[in-house]
Measured scan of single mutants.
Amino acid sequence: QLNLPENTDDWTKEDVNQWLESHKIDQKHREILTEQDVNGAVLKWLKKEHLVDMGITHGPAIQIEELFKELRK
């Protein structure tokens, strides 16, 4: 059970990391997002292209984008 703020805009980069870990996103990809200071407010704007530009491969980038879309519903 994750204990994250209800509003994703309030998520810290550590919260984002924890959420991605719960969805089995590889540590190396989570570390990239942490290094790039991606918090919840930033995550909602990220598209696959942004994630790929940061060095995340296409498969996980699509997965992260789709997971966040599902979360926002």
Rank of each mutant, 00 (worst) to 15 (best):
40 G>N: 00
9 D>K: 08
33 L>C: 02
31 E>W: 04
7 N>H: 09
70 E>F: 09
5 P>S: 07
37 D>Y: 13
20 L>V: 02
61 A>R: 03
9 D>L: 10
29 H>R: 05
23 H>W: 05
6 E>S: 06
26 D>R: 04
62 I>L: 14
52 V>H: 12
46 L>W: 06
14 E>R: 04
36 Q>E: 09
42 V>Q: 15
3 N>M: 06
21 E>S: 09
20 L>E: 00
60 P>C: 15
32 I>N: 08
67 L>H: 12
21 E>G: 06
41 A>V: 09
26 D>M: 10
45 W>Q: 15
67 L>K: 15
15 D>R: 02
55 G>S: 00
23 H>L: 11
36 Q>F: 12
52 V>C: 14
69 K>W: 13
36 Q>W: 13
37 D>W: 13
54 M>Y: 14
44 K>R: 07
33 L>F: 12
67 L>S: 07
51 L>W: 01
9 D>W: 09
18 Q>F: 09
20 L>D: 00
27 Q>V: 09
53 D>K: 13
69 K>P: 04
18 Q>C: 11
70 E>K: 11
9 D>Q: 11
15 D>I: 09
3 N>S: 09
34 T>E: 09
4 L>N: 06
67 L>P: 04
28 K>I: 12
16 V>Q: 00
32 I>E: 06
51 L>I: 01
27 Q>R: 05
11 W>R: 00
33 L>I: 11
23 H>R: 11
23 H>K: 12
31 E>V: 07
19 W>S: 00
23 H>E: 11
51 L>R: 02
21 E>M: 07
40 G>E: 02
42 V>M: 15
54 M>P: 03
24 K>R: 07
34 T>D: 06
30 R>Y: 00
29 H>S: 14
28 K>G: 11
55 G>V: 14
44 K>Y: 05
31 E>G: 07
4 L>H: 05
54 M>F: 14
53 D>P: 06
22 S>Y: 10
23 H>N: 03
31 E>M: 10
69 K>H: 13
5 P>E: 10
52 V>S: 13
34 T>G: 12
22 S>G: 07
3 N>Y: 05
18 Q>P: 00
16 V>S: 00
25 I>A: 03
28 K>T: 11
25 I>V: 06
10 D>R: 07
41 A>R: 12
8 T>K: 08
19 W>T: 00
15 D>M: 07
30 R>M: 02
53 D>M: 10
59 G>N: 15
9 D>H: 03
38 V>T: 12
59 G>M: 14
26 D>H: 03
26 D>W: 06
39 N>W: 00
39 N>K: 10
54 M>A: 12
45 W>N: 15
32 I>H: 06
37 D>K: 15
46 L>P: 01
54 M>N: 04
30 R>I: 11
35 E>M: 06
3 N>Q: 03
60 P>S: 15
67 L>R: 14
35 E>C: 04
18 Q>A: 07
59 G>P: 14
7 N>T: 05
60 P>V: 14
39 N>I: 01
10 D>M: 11
35 E>T: 05
54 M>G: 03
16 V>R: 00
33 L>T: 01
62 I>D: 15
41 A>W: 15
41 A>S: 13
8 T>L: 14
37 D>Q: 14
10 D>K: 08
8 T>H: 11
22 S>C: 09
9 D>V: 05
28 K>F: 10
15 D>W: 00
15 D>P: 00
45 W>L: 14
2 L>F: 01
29 H>V: 12
19 W>N: 00
37 D>E: 10
13 K>R: 08
45 W>P: 11
38 V>A: 11
36 Q>Y: 13
51 L>T: 05
58 H>R: 14
13 K>G: 05
28 K>M: 10
15 D>Q: 03
10 D>Q: 05
14 E>T: 04
21 E>K: 07
36 Q>M: 13
27 Q>W: 05
21 E>P: 01
9 D>F: 06
31 E>H: 08
60 P>Q: 14
10 D>T: 08
8 T>R: 05
13 K>H: 10
62 I>M: 14
2 L>P: 03
70 E>Y: 06
3 N>G: 01
16 V>I: 09
34 T>Y: 09
19 W>L: 06
12 T>Y: 00
35 E>G: 06
2 L>W: 07
11 W>Y: 11
